[in-house]
Design a protein around this nucleic acid. Structure first.
Lengths: 235, 235
DNA sequence: CTTGACAATTTGTGATATCATTTAATATTA
DNA sequence: TAATATTAAATGATATCACAAATTGTCAAG
């Protein structure tokens, strides 16, 4: 006898070095990021536990972590959902993402080596492949890997976790944006970022970073959100 | 028979609307913020549970949340500490804090009303009182309240949680800085912030915000850190 | 006095049980 | 039929239990 409508959380490979709680965290994070748990979905601890075949204990811990990152919203009734996007929240997240990533890029530049640039080029090539294969989930992940490789060049990294949190909050939405492949591909500014890194040109790097983020998300996303001015509220 | 050296986590008032887990989170957060759990302290789940007279379950959930905010570091052996500060990390945190708060202040300005300015003035006056009473914990909290009141004027707030996380990471250190009362008081730029808000002067607001943060933390903190170039590593 | 092996203890982790609260379902009444 | 009261089921929260891994303490050998 099936539950109301059993939640499907995409499986990810279980590594031996992960505790169950960490595995659940990674799995839920991935599910939210690629939009497998659409905003507004009603989540329960026990439902998630059942969906993954685990006890509620590690589920709770993972969910608590995600709620701290605002990837899961805990309502007053103690019910939980993936937060809905509104135009206002989207614009704030976009502005915050730009501020953070421009900042992180600038502070990484002094630590950039050719090794890192080559790594980023390799990731960029993988993105072309993922695009050919039409693998949108992979494209999302690789796009993040591209940026992450840059920001982590800074050895005293403290902004990366914050940026990851913002990515996660925009995640379910970004996925929808990426589905508009042609437009997404057109506005990809990775080449400009790589060129700016090669020439160690701060100003160009900041402009390219901001453009990549803004143009990558702005157009189709805002178009989608402005359709319903108040946002996608569920009632 | 007493444990090795029983951990003392300052009590905070238990409100009826808090779950045990939330109470533990608030209490640990406060303890870290005011430096009651000095960096490097070896923490255990069961030790914390015993120190608060609770079962390990809610402790674990709260600790997981704090580790996600990087207020508690989970080591590879699954041992836990409050992270030590190093000069490199400190400078990254300071730069991130400035980037974030300048950003948040700018995006709050359009929503600033006289009511909010008056609120901030009131908090500033309370800080004078706390200073007279030599209540440094209260001074730390009020300083945060001052800034929080500004940033939360923006109704679609998304940067506040991020800023809180950075505060928490600098917390144990900021506290040591504030103990240098005279110097701290001298560099307080709250009046400039209030003036900039009253005149709706963006440029002045950003300058005042950056100055308040940088001067408030920079001098004595860096002095302290440069003493031990590698940071306060425990061995 | 130092080093290394081994036992005892402590600890993190995850599952389970219990209880209060909330939600859903059913029955009852207007 | 619609609204409300009543009952049943599901859920979140916390404590406890069981187990494996890690740590600490002890002691003998060098």
């Amino acid at each position: 006898m099936a539950k109301h409508h059993q939640l499907d959380v995409p499986e990810i490979p279980m590594r031996a070095d992960l505790t169950t709680q960490e595995y659940v965290y990674e799995r839920l994070r991935y599910a939210i990021m690629v939009g497998a748990i659409p905003p507004g979905t009603n989540l329960t601890m026990r439902g998630l536990a059942e969906a993954m075949g685990l006890s509620p204990t590690p589920i709770r811990e993972a969910v608590r972590r995600l709620s701290t990152e605002h990837a899961i919203e805990v309502l007053q009734n103690r019910r939980m959902t993936v937060p809905n996007m509104s135009l206002g929240r989207f614009e704030e997240l976009l502005a915050l993402r730009i501020a953070l990533e421009v900042h992180a890029a600038e502070r990484s530049l002094p630590y950039i080596s050719n090794v890192i640039i080559d790594e980023m080029r390799a990731v960029d090539r993988q993105m072309d492949d993922a695009l050919s294969d039409n693998d949108l989930d992979q494209l999302t992940i690789l796009n993040q890997t591209f940026h992450r490789t840059l920001y982590r060049a800074n050895p005293h990294q403290v902004s990366m976790p914050v940026i990851e949190s913002v990515w996660l909050q925009m995640g379910p939405f970004q996925r929808q944006v990426i589905e508009n492949i042609k437009e997404y591909y057109t506005v990809d500014r990775h080449k400009e970022i790589l060129d700016a890194l090669s020439s160690r040109d701060v100003a160009a790097l900041l402009i390219a970073t901001e453009s990549d983020i803004r143009e990558g998300m702005s157009r189709s996303a805002r178009q989608q959100l402005t359709k319903v001015p108040g946002g996608n509220q569920v009632a």
